[in-house]
């Protein structure tokens, strides 16, 4: 009789332990999922910050920015400077890689001639393991110093991150 009672108590202890470890397992799975999700969210945040800083570097690039009496103008691209920069940038890939990393920067005219072909300022294709891609479009004034006219343009910065 005592032997049977002891067996039941041992079985009860085992059942409690099984339930305890199952709960512990569920808790651990939940914890790892939360940690994984936080790491992914942090990685996405870092990639986005990187994308924003590359976009800002492109928008304030002295090689293309308008200036008057050596005072740079915000959100303005000098089209003469742009044409020169397009030919200079491919000759200095390492210098511009430090600024723009893996990205593509194009400048297009919206008004008055929306059919004008877009100009690619910088283009460095990303390796296969760069899976994230962020596109930032910022309206800019395209200033032609020869005719002293302003056109409505758009600078598009596509950045690739891991």
């Amino acid at each position: 009789m005592n032997n049977k009672k002891a067996q039941i108590q041992i079985f009860e202890t085992i059942a409690v332990l099984v339930v305890f470890f199952v709960l512990l397992g569920i808790g651990f799975i939940f914890y790892t999922k939360v940690i994984k999700s936080n790491i992914e969210s942090d990685a996405a945040e870092i990639s986005q910050s990187k994308s924003v800083s590359i976009a800002q570097r492109a928008m304030f690039l002295p090689e293309i920015q308008c200036s008057e009496d050596n005072v740079p103008k915000e959100n303005c691209i000098d089209t003469l400077k742009l044409d020169s920069a397009i030919s200079v940038i491919p000759d200095n890939p390492l210098y511009y890689y430090d600024l723009f990393e893996f990205s593509k920067i194009t400048i297009s005219e919206i008004y008055p001639d929306s059919s004008a072909s877009a100009k690619t300022l910088y283009n460095r294709a990303a390796p296969n393991d760069y899976k994230r891609q962020f596109k930032t479009r910022v309206p800019v004034t395209l200033y032609d110093p020869l005719t002293k006219t302003n056109k409505f343009g758009m600078i598009e910065i596509v950045t690739y991150t891991k």
Binding site: S41, P139, T149, N150, F152
Partner: peptide, 28 residues
């Protein structure tokens, strides 16, 4: 709540940038 740095950056500037650039645009 998840944060979205890039969207905050672009949307906060969008209306201001478009209007500012539009008002400076020359009419051919």
């Amino acid at each position: 709540k998840s944060t979205n740095t890039r969207n905050d950056f672009t949307s906060s500037q969008e209306a201001s940038n478009i209007l500012n650039t539009f008002l400076k645009t020359s009419a051919p």
